[in-house]
Design a protein around this nucleic acid. Sequence first.
DNA 1: CAAGCTAGAAATGTATACAATTTTGCCAGA
DNA 2: TCTGGCAAAATTGTATACATTTCTAGCTTG
Lengths: 219, 219
Amino acid sequence: MEQSSESYIYQRLKNAIIKGYIKQGTKLVETTLAKQMQVSRTPIRGAIRRLTYDGFAVYEANKGTCVIKPTLQEIKETFFVRQQLEKTAARLATETISPEQIQELQHYCHEEIQTFENRDIEEFHRINDAIHLLIAQVSGNTVLRRYIEELLNRTKIYLILYDPFQTTPLNPSIKEHQKVIEALQAKDPDAAEKAMELHMLSSYESMEIPVLPEDYISL
Amino acid sequence: MEQSSESYIYQRLKNAIIKGYIKQGTKLVETTLAKQMQVSRTPIRGAIRRLTYDGFAVYEANKGTCVIKPTLQEIKETFFVRQQLEKTAARLATETISPEQIQELQHYCHEEIQTFENRDIEEFHRINDAIHLLIAQVSGNTVLRRYIEELLNRTKIYLILYDPFQTTPLNPSIKEHQKVIEALQAKDPDAAEKAMELHMLSSYESMEIPVLPEDYISL
DNA sequence: CAAGCTAGAAATGTATACAATTTTGCCAGA
DNA sequence: TCTGGCAAAATTGTATACATTTCTAGCTTG
């Protein structure tokens, strides 16, 4: 499948933002990026606009587009919305989840433990995402799934600002996932919702404004 | 304030879709629209892409963009997500709402009753939107507010498919709004959440596939 | 007559040119 | 030195031209 130039550029830019290669607040200048990526302004422009619609950048007419620089307040608000939707997804999932899907979730949990022992943070996050996305999918509400996916993506960029060295203790996360999965297996909506609520809460309640040099760039 | 051509085109197209002037499933051809609107393809293209990101159209690479043609399932799913978020907003609003804001809501309710007597459906919907948006704003969570605003916009297009003649009894809606406002005034989170849940539920639970000629256009 | 192929048309994707707006930096004057 | 303004540079907004892909209509062939 031949992918369009714009999609490719979009992916590259998004990745660079999420990974922190592009500093928050940076202005995304069309002409500059066009030269760097050896394409015309047209696909660059499209990619930048898409980043805007996805919430990774802010646009001002006749001024240009900058990578977002969220406040701690905004970050917590976003996590809160994500929490609400994931709570709902977990509740719905108790009614529709199949034994195979439960097995898949448990498999992820095992992988998570192994990855934790290996200290492979990147892989750990990949598995974490997979768990949350699977539950969102199992919920059976595709609109809900799309919103959760969007918010999950959006919260990734926040983790860089909040915890650039990724030192957050991941151990509790594993146990929390297991709690959610147990509730799903027991088909207990209230327990599933509560478990997910607590899990999401622990991922943002302790956030504080990090002390970093102004021009800090995470690897 | 001078608005860009693209923004203007976006607004026009969105309005045409929401009002039903453009039939659901219609392909949005760049060249055709460019001729109609007397501009080049560039701003048309941007406007169409934006409609895509807002969920009013679907895009396929190298194929083009079509106005969405949601199934009843999708419509109900979207209303459900909106319901979840508005429930949350109502709950949060009980903690932050001011006497002035309560008064503003009550004012809307009075307007709503008058408008109902005048059978001005368009105005009625405008007031209804204002009530929901104000509660979302009062919640104090701007991310939540933006999502609710997006979903409110998106559900507008659904009402055309569901009820093109806008014959839905609006009377219960007024009473439901009053219930929500009473709960906000009493600063009772559970009551506010419940009242909003019931109000949202009544707006979509009874939806059925409408019987319409294939080429039906609302006004 | 149906299925498949092919050339032309049509539509989207990208590059480039030009217009309008904003930003920047320098200079004059108080 | 500070401020205001003006002109050049930089950047975004739009138009147009060209490239590539997809759609369509008509023809061929079994």
